[in-house]
Design a protein around this nucleic acid. Structure first.
Lengths: 183, 183
DNA sequence: ATATATATATATCTTATTGATATATATATT
DNA sequence: AATATATATATCAATAAGATATATATATAT
């Protein structure tokens, strides 16, 4: 149900192929949402049957057809209806720094069973990884037209700002308190 | 593979039933990791076959038997080995405020299609929800013996501190910048 | 006093989702 | 020239979530 809604939401900014939806969900947005091809393609097909999207097939010689999906009027209506209905649910089920699946933090919880040098190494690499993501979020160079949604809209700026804020304060905390983890 | 590791990690602090594992993962730790019964029970059974855990069945009249699982020596070895091997993977796959599945933030991204009053209401409720979780994290009253792992160990304090930090800065950002979302 | 809700406790089943793999070609890099 | 990466779609097995069924005890509200 959500998968449909997310794909439709991304299609509101213009027609896209399944590959482009995946691409978009692999940019800065990847920090808050991801979908695999195994989810995207079946969902697109299902929505085609339900007439929530239409599909224009571009023939390409020797390559498989490029299938460009557009949201239909029925789809737009369904999307807005569904967004409204699920808003109170999405509010709680989501996570942005208050509900956060984290294998890294589980590793820290269990770190007493890890060689102390490994724990140190893991934290170093984690900080590096976090800083790479920060850089990706703050990057202001050219983007594909798909990524413009994260740039030029107030919603996109808000999200980028929030994520930057959360990640930075996480990095700060780890740097200041890592010494308190048992040695 | 991870499910096994997480269950074993929780069993290192003492024998537990499947229900108690679920309980523990529904406390403050729920913010970073959760498992459903549909995952816990089959995993426990699989690990019993593999002799990573042992099981003491307590007969109870008229109630189903209480099955208490303990980590075996083989299990402890497997756990430590696996923790070490997967550490470099868990480092990246995890999310704590830098990679964060968030239906709430997707809702914000799509909020232009939501009635403006709804967006406002959603943000208000979200802030309330976040503050409830903060209170839960900072709560210092009595806990079940299972929860002690999050209290009395340096790892537990570190996690609680990090989560508190991340959530607080998220709340701050939202309060200061919500006016910038289109009206 | 009684009804209702919540907590304890295990288990199964359908559905959703991931992650891996297969296929095919163009383009960029070494 | 060789290799790696990007474009592009699709399927499938393995994993995991979420719902539901079952059974009882206890706490709370009417």
């Amino acid at each position: 149900m959500q998968t449909e809604c997310i794909c439709l939401g991304l299609l509101t900014t213009g027609p896209k192929s399944g590959y482009e939806i995946k691409q978009f969900l692999s940019g800065p947005l990847n920090q808050i949402m991801s979908l695999s091809f195994g989810t995207i393609y079946p969902t697109l097909n299902k929505m085609l049957t339900d007439e929530l999207v239409s599909c224009k097939q571009k023939a390409q010689d020797k390559k498989p057809d490029k299938k460009i999906y557009s949201i239909t009027k029925k789809g737009q209506k369904w999307f807005e209806q569904n967004l409204l209905e699920s808003s109170s649910e999405w509010l709680r089920s989501g996570n942005y720094g208050d509900q956060v699946k984290s294998e890294f933090l589980m590793l820290i919880l269990f770190s007493e069973y890890l060689p102390k040098e490994t724990t140190n190494l893991v934290i170093n690499e984690r900080l590096l990884f976090a800083k790479q993501i920060l850089a990706l979020l703050q990057y202001d160079g050219p983007v594909t037209q798909t990524g413009a949604q994260m740039r030029n809209t107030p919603q996109g700026s808000f999200l980028r700002g929030l994520m930057t804020n959360i990640i930075s304060s996480g990095i700060d905390y780890i740097e200041k308190n890592r010494n308190k983890l048992g040695k």
